Amino acid sequence: MFNPSTPQTAAATLYGSRAAPALPAAGAAAHERASQKLTETQKLLKDRLDPQRRVVHAGDVVYQAGERFGNLYILNSGFFKIVNLSADGREQVVGLKFRGDWLGFDGIAGGRYSCDAVAMDTGEVWVVSYESLLAAALAEPALLQVFHTAMSREIAHDRDSLMSVCTLPADARVADFLRYWAQSLAERGMRTDQITLRMTRAEIGNYLGMTLESVSRALSRLARDKVIEFVEKGRRDVQIPDVGALSAFVQRCIAPAPAMLQ
């Protein structure tokens, strides 16, 4: 059971199972299967729901907090952030979304969206009426399974993100953030050896509960340790020679210090 008084123990429990990098062939095969599954799912949604397709560009708002709920949005391409507004007016990045993810689940319970969904680059969203989805699912049970899978994946990722922020030291948080980004790309059939971060250092810090300076220091340490490389100084293009090295770096950060001899 998670004990908040021992954050490193909790972090080791959460990350221990994925700290050791998988064999390259096995990892590639798993990512290929995930990519194929995503392609099949997207085809099913497109064929059965006939969604409205909407092209968005960096900064475009898909929906805003307080807006009446009516649609769900399936991401066909691009990267998106979910932003919440705190009581004192500060913006807080609370989620990142990739191809195959869904937007708008937060609006189902209360009838209004509780966050803003904002595009971070050029992409395409599929707009699906919630009522149409429920009606289509009656005739095609596979749609209901896809819907539930998407919700379950979001719940699981939100849990992992919370554990990362609450239990990992700063450097490990940034490493795990990069690992998640690269792994998400791999599962979608995209390259992971070089990724373009669609967020500024300040936005990454906002998402991870860190200052801009702490994010910069963590990235510099990862570069010094040869876990990542920058294509150009100060740019967002990051080379990741081995994604498994990021998991190993996280594990080293949370490993208990060796006991001192009395």
Rank of each mutant, 00 (worst) to 15 (best):
S129T: 09
G123S: 08
C115K: 14
K97G: 07
N71D: 08
D106P: 04
A109S: 10
L134T: 10
T167H: 06
G107W: 02
A175C: 01
S132H: 13
S129F: 01
A119T: 11
E124W: 03
C166L: 15
V118G: 05
I74M: 14
A172L: 10
D158M: 11
L134W: 04
A135Y: 04
V165W: 08
V146I: 08
E140I: 14
G78A: 09
S161C: 04
V83H: 09
S164F: 00
S77P: 02
M120G: 05
R159M: 15
F69C: 03
G104Y: 07
L72W: 05
G111I: 13
A175I: 02
D121Q: 15
D160S: 13
L75Q: 03
G123L: 04
I74W: 15
C166F: 12
Y130W: 13
L75H: 04
A117N: 01
P169H: 07
E124T: 15
Y113N: 07
T149H: 05
R173G: 10
I155G: 02
L72P: 00
F79M: 09
V174M: 12
L103R: 12
A137F: 02
D101H: 11
D160K: 12
G95A: 14
W126S: 07
R159H: 14
G107D: 05
Y73S: 01
G70N: 04
S164Y: 05
K81P: 00
L85G: 02
N76H: 14
A175M: 04
V128D: 02
G111P: 09
K81C: 02
Y73N: 03
S114H: 14
L75E: 03
N84Q: 13
D160C: 05
D101I: 06
